[in-house]
Amino acid sequence: MADGLKFDLVSPERLLFSEIVESVVVPGTEGYLTVLANHAPLMTTLRPGVIEIKAQSGTVTRFFVGGGLVDINASGLTILADEAMGAEQMTSDYLSERIRVSREDADNTGIDYITRTTARQRVSDLEDVQRWILPA
């Protein structure tokens, strides 16, 4: 895999990562997917989770993403994240607060069914991240 995969991770604030890498594991809405060089074109959405980037040297870098869009094309992989931060920056307090707010939305009978269902899924996704990044 001499050519590698061009990967860009963009948050609303800035470009967080831009390199040629070996692979990227992405938390797609339908499940995790691994993207390598010459991947078939695909557009999908992200769920809250962890992106795992494997450099051509073999080192692994992880980022938390709160959701967003994934674009895989002939140029490479671009992720436009709603929010993103290095996994090492993630704190238990931050995730706990995000889970609390999502639970409030999930329990709010004054909002529509789709919004409540989305909030329930977000709680589940964030709890998975909490177990993976911040093991007890």
Rank of each mutant, 00 (worst) to 15 (best):
E83R: 11
A81E: 04
L95I: 08
G31L: 05
T78M: 05
R47D: 06
I99Y: 00
E104H: 09
G49Y: 01
N108G: 04
A106C: 02
L42V: 10
H39T: 07
T29R: 12
A40Q: 12
M43Q: 13
T45M: 09
A37H: 08
E97G: 14
T91S: 05
D71P: 08
V65P: 00
A74D: 14
I79Y: 01
Y32V: 11
E88V: 14
N38L: 06
S102V: 05
Y94A: 14
R47P: 02
S57E: 12
A40P: 02
I51S: 05
N108C: 02
M85F: 06
S96F: 04
N38H: 12
R100K: 12
A87N: 01
E30H: 10
V101I: 10
S92D: 15
I51L: 12
L77C: 05
T78E: 06
M85V: 07
V70T: 09
I53W: 02
I79P: 01
E83T: 13
A84C: 02
A81S: 06
V60S: 13
V50N: 04
V60Q: 14
D107T: 07
T29Y: 09
Q56M: 15
A74I: 12
L80I: 07
A84V: 03
S102E: 05
E88T: 15
V101Q: 10
R100G: 03
D71R: 15
R100D: 08
E88D: 15
Y94F: 12
M90Y: 10
A84L: 00
L33N: 10
L95W: 00
V50A: 04
F64Q: 10
I72Y: 03
D107V: 00
E52H: 09
Q89H: 15
L95G: 02
S102L: 03
T45Y: 07
G58V: 07
T29W: 08
D105P: 06
A55C: 11
N38W: 08
R47F: 03
R62T: 14
G31C: 03
A84Q: 01
E52W: 03
T44R: 09
N38I: 04
I79M: 00
H39G: 04
R98Y: 00
A55P: 05
E104T: 11
S102C: 01
G67C: 03
R100W: 03
G58Q: 06
A87Y: 01
I79E: 02
Q56S: 13
T34Q: 11
E83D: 11
S57F: 06
N38Y: 09
A87I: 03
T61R: 14
E83C: 10
F64I: 08
I79H: 02
A40N: 09
R100A: 10
L95A: 00
D71F: 10
A81D: 03
G49T: 07
A84I: 01
S92G: 14
L46N: 01
E30K: 14
I99A: 02
V50M: 09
F63H: 10
V50E: 08
R47K: 11
V65N: 00
Y32D: 14
E97N: 13
G76A: 04
N108H: 02
Q56R: 15
V101M: 03
Y94E: 14
F63C: 05
L69S: 07
T29P: 01
E104G: 07
L95P: 01
E104L: 11
P41K: 04
L42N: 04
Y94K: 14
A40T: 13
G68E: 08
